[in-house]
């Protein structure tokens, strides 16, 4: 780790101000950033910790019925407090280990957009709105590929608003070493149709499987997927699975999520 200064603002306004300085970096729960710093793979001059911004912590329902989760809310808090959206609570309860869940935050995860992270699948699958200090971004416009998002320099994810589906489920097939998603599929059924988001599989990061969305919107059953195949092109190849294996798992996990949706 290189030496750095740390600032701990208590309001979003102060955090934005702090981040406007030279060579700054926002720090959420630090579950990715701190190991990166320890490896000396990043060297920001100033870390701006968001964990003291109380207006970014908490879970509530808004008038539109959306579940609104503050950007600095930990995975453990979502696991415990998002009971009205059981699939989301279950997803949060299986991220990493207890230490990760008690430090890591939803805003940090979405800002990082790891291609194997769980939260991007929930946000895209549920069609969430990513609220920042300057604007609202639809999930469909937010994820721009591996570790890449629509966020501008210094922009902070202050809140995530999830429409609550009729039923939903997240199925994660874990990579044996890291236990990140080798393939994770979030299925959400709304009155006006089904959304499916897949994490872990693609070189482009989280994506929607629109073909299956159409099939499941017509018939919400695993059998509706039987004639569909997922192309292996563009899937990740690594020690833990070939593109063909990942493509296969997308279909298997989608079917299981449909079967388990509550």
């Amino acid at each position: 780790m290189y030496a750095f200064e740390i600032e701990k603002p208590s309001t979003i306004a102060d955090a934005v101000l702090a981040l406007s300085g030279e060579d700054t970096q926002a720090l959420g729960g630090g579950q990715t950033l701190i190991p990166t710093l320890k490896q000396r793979l990043a060297a920001p001059e100033v870390l701006v910790s968001l964990s003291g911004v109380s207006e970014m912590v908490g879970i509530c329902r808004n008038d539109a019925g959306e579940m609104c989760i503050g950007g600095a809310t930990t995975h453990a808090a979502v696991a415990a407090g998002a009971g009205a959206f059981p699939a989301l609570a279950a997803l949060a309860s299986h991220i990493g280990d207890p230490a990760v869940r008690n430090r890591g935050t939803i805003g940090g995860s979405l800002a990082n957009n790891d291609p194997s992270a769980c939260y991007p699948a929930a946000a895209l699958g549920a069609g969430a709105t990513i609220k920042t200090n300057t604007r609202d971004i639809a999930a469909d416009d937010y994820f721009e590929g591996m570790f890449s998002t629509a966020l501008d320099e210094g922009e902070i994810v202050t809140e995530v608003r999830f429409p609550v589906p009729e039923v939903a489920n997240y199925q994660k097939f874990v990579q044996p070493a890291s236990r990140f998603a080798l393939v994770g599929v979030f299925v959400a059924k709304f009155a006006d149709g089904v959304r499916i988001a897949v994490t872990g599989a693609s070189e482009e990061g989280v994506f929607r499987w629109t073909e299956a969305e159409a099939a499941l919107s017509a018939d919400f059953s695993a059998e509706a997927l039987s004639d569909l195949t997922v192309p292996a092109d563009g899937m990740i190849a690594d020690l833990h699975g070939s593109p063909a294996y990942r493509a296969h798992l997308v279909k298997v996990m989608t079917g299981r999520a449909v079967g388990a949706a509550t």
């Binding site: 044996p176 070493a177 890291s178 690594d238 020690l239």
Partner: peptide, 24 residues
Amino acid sequence: ALLENCAYDEDGQLVSASYMDYAM
């Protein structure tokens, strides 16, 4: 039998060089 694999690529780089890729 099921998990651990210390793997090198053809350039001699250690592919499973951390617990992110080496499954205990």
